[in-house]
Simulated scan of single mutants.
Amino acid sequence: MPHSAKKIYLIHGWAANRHVFDDFIPRLPHDWDIHAPNLPGHGDAPLDEPFDIAAVADRYAAQIGEPAHILGWSLGGLVALYLAARHPEKVKSLCLTASFAKFTAAPDYPEGLSNSALAKMVGAFQQDYAKHIKQFLQLQLLNTQNADTVLHKVLPDLIRHGVPQALQSALDAVNRADARPFLAQIRQPVLLVFGQKDAITPPRMGEYLRRHLSDSRLHLMEKAAHAPFLSHAGEFADVYQTFVEAV
C-alpha cells in the first residue's frame, strides 16, 4: 500500500490545541495526509455546549471519509477510543499516548488517579495561561536535549488563542468518562506509547489498556513524561511510522 494512502488524524489533549503537534508532524512521512483538528473549546474551535466526549467522537467520525489512523494524546486518546468503539468502520488503527480508559481511580480500577493535580491547574491556566502551559511543557521536556528548540516551535501558536474555553467542561468530562465497558469491542491494531516518568497518566494505565485491547502492544519510553511525542519526537515518529506501515 503506498504512502499516499495513509490518512492520519492527530487528536491533542486537555488544555492544549492542535499546535502541540507542530514539531512532531514534520517528522512523519511528507506524503501522509495528516489532519490535526482542535477539540471543541480549544484553540480557535468554539464550544457550543458542555464538552461531551462521545459527541466529539461522532463529530470527527462524520469528517472522516476512508478509514484513518487515529493518534490521540491524553484526552485525545480517550476521544480516539470512543471513535473506534462507536464508528469502527472509520478507524484503521489507534495510537494512544499518555492516555487512559478511565482517569479516576475506583475500587475495581486501582490504575486510576485518586488525587489528580489537574483540578489545581485549571485556576493556574485561567490566571496566566501562557506562563503555566510553558512551565507544564518544560516539565515534560526535562530530559530533552533540544527542549528550547521544541518550545520555540510549538509555544507561540499554542498560546495564541489564550486560555481554552473548555478548560473546566473538558476536565469534568474526563473525570466522568469510562471507556472500560467497550474496550473488548475494539479490534483494530493499537499502539500504546507511555513515558516511564509520567505522573499524570502513569504507565500502569497503559498496562491496563494493553490487557484489555485485544490487538495492542505497549511501547514504554524510559525518560519520557506526559508528552513523549514532544520530548522523544524522533523515537516516537520512528515507532509510529513502523506501526502504521505494518497495518
Rank of each mutant, 00 (worst) to 15 (best):
residue 116 S to G: 07
residue 137 L to P: 02
residue 72 G to V: 08
residue 49 E to F: 08
residue 71 L to A: 13
residue 77 G to E: 04
residue 111 E to D: 12
residue 147 A to M: 10
residue 120 K to P: 10
residue 125 F to D: 00
residue 97 T to P: 07
residue 51 F to N: 02
residue 114 S to C: 11
residue 67 P to A: 13
residue 149 T to D: 14
residue 91 V to M: 03
residue 56 V to G: 08
residue 114 S to Q: 15
residue 144 T to C: 14
residue 153 K to R: 15
residue 150 V to Q: 05
residue 83 L to A: 00
residue 87 H to M: 03
residue 70 I to R: 05
residue 153 K to S: 15
residue 51 F to K: 00
residue 78 L to G: 08
residue 57 A to F: 09
residue 56 V to Q: 11
residue 100 F to M: 11
residue 42 H to N: 04
residue 142 L to Q: 15
residue 88 P to K: 00
residue 113 L to Y: 08
residue 107 P to H: 07
residue 134 K to V: 13
residue 51 F to R: 01
residue 123 G to T: 14
residue 139 L to N: 14
residue 129 Y to K: 00
residue 105 A to F: 10
residue 123 G to F: 11
residue 69 H to A: 06
residue 44 D to I: 10
residue 147 A to E: 11
residue 82 Y to G: 05
residue 146 N to M: 09
residue 157 D to I: 05
residue 153 K to C: 15
residue 128 D to E: 05
residue 118 L to F: 14
residue 42 H to C: 06
residue 103 F to E: 02
residue 147 A to S: 14
residue 48 D to S: 10
residue 99 S to K: 02
residue 110 P to Q: 08
residue 152 H to F: 09
residue 112 G to W: 12
residue 151 L to F: 08
residue 143 N to R: 12
residue 138 Q to C: 10
residue 129 Y to P: 02
residue 125 F to T: 00
residue 67 P to T: 05
residue 135 Q to P: 05
residue 71 L to D: 07
residue 154 V to H: 03
residue 156 P to W: 06
residue 64 I to C: 11
